[in-house]
Every structure is written in structure tokens, then in C-alpha cells.
Design a protein around this nucleic acid. Structure first.
Lengths: 109, 109
DNA sequence: TGCGAATATTCGGATAATCGAATATACTAA
DNA sequence: TTAGTATATTCGATTATCCGAATATTCGCA
């Protein structure tokens, strides 16, 4: 039950684009358009990823006129990302090798 | 690049069974068989999940005779799970509702 | 009113994840 | 060697995720 919840949060973060979104939002409230510009991705694609983050209640959104501003609901998630960075650095050598292997399995995206 | 790595770790944790495995391993080194008994899942299924955790270097394994003992490579991951629990409790009401919704989308597993 | 910008949703195809069943491998002990 | 236990791998079917293209929706402004 708690595990299912945790899994659903991890799953929401299990995509490079969504991690990038969360990292942008750590700076504060940002409009969808601004996120799109900064990440340089398709509008529809961003919107889909935002929908996932919304459905997990990871982000809050607020409409203002034409735009929608997104923000992180809880700074704990930022901390989680920091811990991951720590984890990454502690395993730097292994991690680089692991990434290669993971990529080798499904090449050329 | 760093994001891809983080995403791959999150993805490895994005399953209730694998979270359960990590939680068992927080206690120390445990044999595959013991994990299987505690979780009450199919042998093949456990082995598949362990393979994923291995491929991400989340767990270490050590053969001893007939058995294979698994352990967490890095306790930071335990901390991440703790943060998640914190996060869960801070959002308890919302989280419960969110879980219902997530489950409603793909019912009856 | 009608147009354009910002955002969301739907659709279809491609790829990936998941499971149990079957099978393979490795080791121990008789 | 043979039997039995522990673990891993492969296979095929089912379900989920991902993307871009197309389409909707919502709002502000001329």
C-alpha cells in the first residue's frame, strides 16, 4: 500500500524529461511555455509529462489568464534528487559503466 | 546524461515488489530464497526483479554454496525511501486519494 | 464576433515492462 | 553418477509507456 504509493512516485520520476521538469521547478513557479522553451521539447509531449506529474500530485498548477504556472508541491522531492546526486557521485565509475550497458541494450533512440 | 542515470534508478524502484526487496535488504544481507519467502512471490518473478536491481547496481550479490546473498550497495537509497515516507505522511489525505485514482485507471491487477 | 496564443487531450504505432510457465545452470549430498 | 535444492534465463502473451500528429479547449484582444 505504502509501497504502491512510493512506486507510483518513482515511476513518475522515471523519465529524464520529468526529472528535468522537476529540476526547473525547484527554482520556483514556471509557466508551461517557459518550461517548454527551456527543455526544447514538443508542446504536446511536455503537456503529457506534466499531466503525469499532476496525477501524482507532484506539482501544483495555477491558471493565470492564458497561462498555467506550475510549481513543486513539496520540497522533499528536491531533496530526493539531491540524494540521488550524492548516490551518483558515490558510484561515479560504476554508474558510467552501468549507463553504457543500459544504453547498449536499447540503442539509438 | 545525469538525468538519464537518475531516471534509470527511479525506474528500477518504480515497482512495489522492488521497493519491498530494497526494504528487506535494508536489514542486511539476505538470501534470494529468504526474500522470496518473505514476499511470497514466484521464484522466477523475484529473480527477474533482482536482475533489474543488479543491472542498476543497486544491490550487490555474493554466492555462498548453493545460495546467493543480496545486499544494498548504498544506504542512501534507504534514505530516499525514508524521505518518501515523510512525503507520503505530509500528504496523507491527498496521497490516499491519488492512489485511488491511479488504481482506478488500471483496475484489478 | 473572430483570431491567435497557450495549454490539454486523443489517437495510433512503436517500444518496453510484467508475469507465469518452462527450462537451464550451479551446487550439495547421497 | 544421480537426485534435489537454489537461482537464473528464456519465451510468449498481456498490458503499459512513449512519442508526434491532429484536434480541442480556454482565454485575451482587435
Amino acid at each position: 500500500m505504502l509501497r504502491e504509493y512510493k512506486a507510483s512516485i518513482f515511476q513518475a520520476l522515471a523519465h529524464p524529461t520529468r526529472i528535468a521538469i522537476v529540476e526547473v521547478l525547484r527554482e520556483g513557479e514556471v509557466s508551461a511555455r517557459a518550461i517548454q522553451d527551456r527543455l526544447g521539447i514538443e508542446q504536446a509531449n511536455l503537456s503529457q509529462h506534466l499531466a503525469i506529474l499532476r496525477s501524482r500530485q507532484i506539482v501544483a498548477h495555477r491558471k493565470e489568464g492564458n497561462q498555467v504556472f506550475y510549481s513543486l508541491r513539496h520540497r522533499v522531492l528536491g531533496k530526493v534528487l539531491d540524494l540521488m546526486r550524492q548516490y551518483f557521485q558515490a558510484n561515479l565509475a560504476d554508474a558510467a559503466q552501468m549507463l553504457d550497458e543500459v544504453r547498449a541494450e536499447r540503442p539509438a533512440r
